[in-house]
Design a protein around this nucleic acid. Structure first.
Ligand SMILES: [Mn+2]
Ligand SMILES: [Mn+2]
Ligand SMILES: [Zn+2]
Ligand SMILES: [Zn+2]
Lengths: 148, 148
DNA sequence: CTTTTTTGTGCAACGTCGTTGCGAATAGGG
DNA sequence: CCCTATTCGCAACGACGTTGCACAAAAAAG
């Protein structure tokens, strides 16, 4: 009895859909950021997938590649590290559609993607043409509110 | 004939108002950022005031001190360097009032303070409490628009 | 399945930005 | 003018991120 081919999992599909090769590092990075409602930095992802899984260099190259291909979007922070979060399914190498607000909690230090909250438009002075908008809030998140 | 005391200049006034000592480094940093409509990074300020004027360490300490005392506000960028711009006159060590939008031009790489454009409010999911809001636009500025 | 080609990985070395510790210099107040 | 708290400058360090190059692995070709 020949083994039936099992259906491709979510991570495999994601890589295929964006035309990227299946490699252990990429699968591990995708698994680390998938499902999380907040953005992770390079070092955080490294800890998450286990320090022995890959080295910094490959990880950073993977993150940059994922951003260019529409798998991750960069989340600017008021810190000096770069953070990445999973993109919505309609993002591709051609264009990102992550126009939502981000929220940094000073207590748990997570930077959440508030996917439901769209970035409000602003009227710019004449001559300015914007193609990207980032809205970052800082404060205390749902889970870190002081009791009362 | 004793020399008359000349009236204190703007920079002197600013330092006095915030309770900071008059030092050459501080005066140079203030002079570098004053009047500019855009934010400067540490290395940029260093180049601006002349590399021999001070060293990196003192400059960074000065910038941090100025931020805490309400002379400068930090401008988050989609790059990985910290940028600072002059505060409005009502900022102090107690509180900042720089709720305006910032605009990064990909051509001239300046990050402008659009002081006239207030950051629009957003409705947050229940439980999130924000005390700071950053709105960063990226695109092409007034002066860098392609002719047409 | 085997070979070839293309792409990704890991190591080494490097660069930049920013920080900490500490002795020397200096601004501001008596 | 002198004293003292503050600031400066040097040295060393650390974190994050990048580049060049040889090797390994994935995908394509045969
Ligand atoms: Mn996001
Ligand atoms: Mn500003
Ligand atoms: Zn929190
Ligand atoms: Zn411009």
């Amino acid at each position: 009895m020949p083994p039936l081919p099992s259906p491709p999992d979510r991570i495999t599909q994601t890589l295929v859909r964006h035309g990227l090769r299946q490699t252990p590092v990429r699968r591990a990075v995708l698994a680390a950021v998938a499902g999380k409602g907040y953005a992770l930095s390079g070092p955080e992802i490294e800890r998450e997938i286990g320090p022995g899984t890959t080295d910094r260099i490959t990880l950073y190259r993977t993150l940059k590649s994922f951003e260019q291909h529409g798998l991750l979007h960069r989340v600017p922070d008021d810190t000096d590290v770069l953070r990445y979060a999973a993109c919505s399914i309609e993002c591709s190498a051609e264009a990102h559609f992550d126009n939502h607000v981000h929220f940094r909690c000073g207590t748990c230090t997570h930077t959440y993607c508030l996917s439901q909250v769209a970035v409000p438009a602003v009227a710019l002075p004449g001559g300015f043409r914007a193609d990207r908008r980032h809205y970052l809030l800082s404060g205390t998140c749902q889970l870190c509110q002081p009791a009362g």
